[in-house]
Design a protein around this nucleic acid. Structure first.
Lengths: 242, 242
DNA sequence: AAGGACAACTCGTTTAAACAAGTTTGATAA
DNA sequence: TTATCAAACTTGTTTAAACGAGTTGTCCTT
């Protein structure tokens, strides 16, 4: 429920772009025009526009106007980098049928090796989870999760098989905020080959990262190893003025 | 030269974080504190802070303060996703010795195939460039560029061997603004194996994308194929409130 | 016809103020 | 001691206004 004013404005304009009312190359109505249309100040309009700019939808041009540079997706890429989206959410959005199989679910204590890899302090109690994600009948993602037990009480295999994020947000009332991820291409391990339907591929796209909650506590470290032909990360960047 | 007020504030705080004055887990001085320190309004402070938040340095917490979640890099990754940085710039930043070899430099007309791949209109005059980038003696990146001739007049092999971006920005006075990139892992082609020092790898990390200038013209399409052990893309995301 | 000045637009930055809402702390009351 | 409550913080949102600077088109002059 958006109690903010800029958020529905942002969604409205985004909707207009995605539905093709404003096409690639078009200029949007001016900021002043929008202040009238949405009955708000220029600041609020600019806030909505800046979100779309950061997403690569818009290119503001000093003195000229705001141009649309969004082009509809080629489809086919499940994930979009630049957002935090769980597997279940991404699947739902793309309308494909997906399932999750929990391979390992156990409790561990962080040792030196885990500390180096994940950043959790040595001695912390963690849930260690391995899951395989299927799109249709094909195993496409191999997930390894470390969750901080103190922040994620009551986590169970049955929850891991559904959506951990939904549990954390809806049941525990946790707010997930920021993540920092590293994307690399890696040689497929024996375990990858065993668990994933790699077909002729012998490499994976790995996305590893830490996730923070709204209390500033890093409560999750995850590595997702993707079958290369089913994933593509889209990122948009705005060049820094020096 | 920053004529803006928030930019030096942003850099100052960033510097404080990177130099360790404020460490991982610490809370920054409050916004009001900063308004005094920098002699500006809260809006201006918040603008600087929001940049650092978007970069994954900070986690603002309603009612509590702004926490530092930045951790110094593991080093070793040449590129950081989330910015537009040329090869020459990235190399310079990391202090490594790099060279570029131009393999192909020619003029072409966009046909249907090029149009589908790059998004340039059919019939457009383009520069087609292939380059290999070396770090030390090792060939680590295979770049394929398409530049719109009308927007990049005077482009020459000698420029391609140095830095095209420097030419565009400094000589032509162009402003590079936004890019949209797709990151995928791909099987190494014969040409990859021929040109890159892949060692035992038979796959590459491909980053393909379009670049716009400040006039909203897409003037470049580039695909960079990276040797997998020398690259890592770091991305930070802030979860959308729904 | 060509060129220049200018007005009227555009977006970019900053100030100032007010209120909302979440968190912490400490004083007070039970 | 414990529980409650309010004050004093924190960040989040929005308004309003002013000025700066880049772009475009018009009109007037040459």
């Amino acid at each position: 429920m958006p109690q903010s004013k800029y958020e529905p404005i942002y969604r409205s304009i985004k909707e207009d772009i995605e539905s093709g009312i404003y096409k690639y190359g078009d200029f949007l109505p001016s900021e002043n025009e929008y202040t009238i249309r949405f009955a708000c100040t220029r600041n609020t309009v600019r806030r909505a526009l800046s979100l779309l700019t950061a997403e690569g939808y818009l290119l503001p041009q000093h003195g000229r106007g705001v141009q649309v540079i969004y082009r509809p997706d080629d489809g086919r890429s499940l994930f979009t980098i630049g957002g935090i989206e769980s597997f279940a959410e991404a699947a739902e959005r793309s309308g494909r049928k997906t399932t999750t199989k929990v391979v390992i679910f156990k409790q561990i204590k962080a040792d030196k090796k885990v500390n180096l890899k994940t950043g959790f302090d040595i001695g912390e109690d963690l849930y260690y989870i391995e899951r395989v994600r299927y799109v249709g009948k094909r195993a496409v993602i191999f997930d390894t999760n470390y969750f901080l037990m103190s922040e994620t009480p009551g986590l169970q295999p049955s929850i891991a098989a559904a959506s951990i994020y939904r549990y954390l947000e809806d049941t525990l009332g946790m707010t997930i905020t920021t993540s920092r991820r590293r994307v690399t291409a890696q040689q497929a391990s024996e375990r990858d080959k065993e668990l994933l339907d790699l077909n002729h591929f012998d490499f994976v796209l790995s996305v590893a990262g830490q996730v923070f909650n709204s209390r500033g506590v890093m409560f999750e470290y995850t590595e997702s190893r993707h079958v290369p032909d089913q994933v593509c990360f889209i990122e948009s960047a705005v060049r820094q003025k020096v």
